[in-house]
Nucleic acid binder design. Sequence first.
DNA 1: CGGCATCCACCAAGATACTG
DNA 2: CAGTATCTTGGTGGATGCCG
Lengths: 111, 111
Amino acid sequence: MFDPVCPSTLSPFRFGDKWTPLVIRCLEDGPRRFSELRVPLRGVTAKVLTTTLRNLQRDGFVSRAEHGRQVEYALTPLGRSMLGPINEACAWAEEHWDELLDAREESGRSR
Amino acid sequence: MFDPVCPSTLSPFRFGDKWTPLVIRCLEDGPRRFSELRVPLRGVTAKVLTTTLRNLQRDGFVSRAEHGRQVEYALTPLGRSMLGPINEACAWAEEHWDELLDAREESGRSR
DNA sequence: CGGCATCCACCAAGATACTG
DNA sequence: CAGTATCTTGGTGGATGCCG
């Protein structure tokens, strides 16, 4: 598994996208409409959000459903399964964020 | 925690770097020298590897030790603590990679 | 061996304006 | 409301070459 490092650098894959994990977490508690998503994602532009959603759709992470004029995005089972790793990573960050900042500050001083 | 979405978009933070997770995994089994790292990372350029290592050093993930002419990089406890989430993410990918490819292919056909 | 200095290419992300 | 269409830009990654 490490040798070819997986087809396509795997590790970051979708994680790499700046907004992907955020969008997925926004959908954690149920379907959301386009503009509902824009609120918690502090000012993401429509274009970027659209792109992100289209990519997630393409990869089978979210589903898109039109209800009359409304459009609802929801996590598919596949998308939902990504909550595990994402929350894991967030928990790690919460726990170690301070250490990281400390280290960064310290090496900043010596430089 | 979600509201400010964490200072600095948190989620991807260091994960975002294309090579960061890979480098950390390369150091999982012990210290490695610069050129030892280049081998499994299939042709990463020296410059990029240097940049990545410097960033990791700055954030306290790896330590750099000169032994005469040799230079050894090793994981710090903080860096080692990141193996958890990383391996978690890799395990997820291994498990769901096929589903992702299937979904991508399917939406590719319909397009 | 272990880098650093440059230059370049590409692309994601943002700003802005417009549409069904 | 839910996008699409352009244009611009910053930053990351890659290529190449030089240095102690």
